[in-house]
Simulated assay, not measured.
Amino acid sequence: MAANTFNIGRDGLQLTTFDATLGQVQFNGLTGFTAKPRYKKLESEGADGVTRFRNVPNGHEGTFEIDRVDSSAEAYFAQKESNFFAQYPPSQSTITQTVTELDGTVTQWQYTNVEMALENAGDWKALDKVPLQVSWSASKKIQVA
């Protein structure tokens, strides 16, 4: 393998999102995806004078970056809002990220118990594109393939 070969964004932008109540979620115009682990940082100051640290896994969080090409993202969140006011139980989602590795193999990661929020429904300016942002938080990340 060449020394300066590495993954680029499109290698991991194959995403499938499934809502337990609303079914498959399609965010058309996806341009970016971020995923970050969360940790609860514990610290203990012992009587022996030694400070001990421990990072406890505490979920994952990230964003979808979207260029608005249709109403798919807004329609999904409008339906979630409508369900809330109709007093339906909240639904959670699963995000599956498929990554094409440099050797051609495929790795899949699944984020479970995902809750999403439409953070930005668009900045509408003259001739500029309209970017949207969806944030998400998940309980776990597991490797499925």
Rank of each mutant, 00 (worst) to 15 (best):
N113A: 15
A35W: 04
R54N: 06
T107H: 11
V69H: 01
Q143V: 13
N4T: 12
G29D: 00
T112N: 05
G32M: 09
S137Q: 14
K141W: 02
V114R: 07
K40R: 13
P37N: 10
I8E: 14
Y39S: 05
G23K: 08
A3T: 11
V106N: 03
Q26D: 14
N113E: 15
V134N: 00
A2N: 12
F84D: 02
A75R: 09
G46R: 05
A20S: 13
G46A: 06
G104E: 08
A117V: 11
N83W: 07
S91C: 09
E45W: 01
L15T: 05
F85I: 07
T5C: 06
A121L: 00
T34L: 09
D128W: 01
P37V: 05
F6M: 05
L127S: 08
K36Y: 11
T31I: 15
W136V: 06
S72P: 08
L30K: 07
K125Q: 10
Q97L: 08
Q79C: 03
G32Q: 08
V134H: 02
R10S: 15
S135D: 00
W109K: 09
S139W: 02
W136S: 07
S71C: 04
E74A: 04
L132D: 03
E61C: 01
R52K: 08
M116C: 05
S44L: 06
F33W: 15
Q108V: 14
Q79E: 14
Q24P: 13
T5R: 12
I66L: 12
P89L: 12
Y111I: 08
A75S: 12
P37C: 09
S71D: 15
Q143A: 09
T100M: 05
T112C: 01
N120I: 02
T112V: 02
F84H: 06
N7H: 10
V114A: 07
G104N: 04
T21Q: 14
K140T: 14
T98E: 11
T51S: 03
S139F: 08
E61W: 01
D70G: 06
Q133R: 14
A47I: 01
Q110S: 10
E81D: 03
S44M: 05
T94Q: 11
F64L: 06
N120D: 15
M1L: 13
S139V: 10
A47D: 00
A78I: 03
H60W: 14
Q87Y: 12
T63W: 05
L118W: 08
F18K: 06
D48K: 00
G59C: 09
G12K: 13
F33M: 12
D19V: 04
G59P: 05
K141P: 00
G46Y: 00
E119A: 09
D70S: 03
D19E: 03
L13F: 15
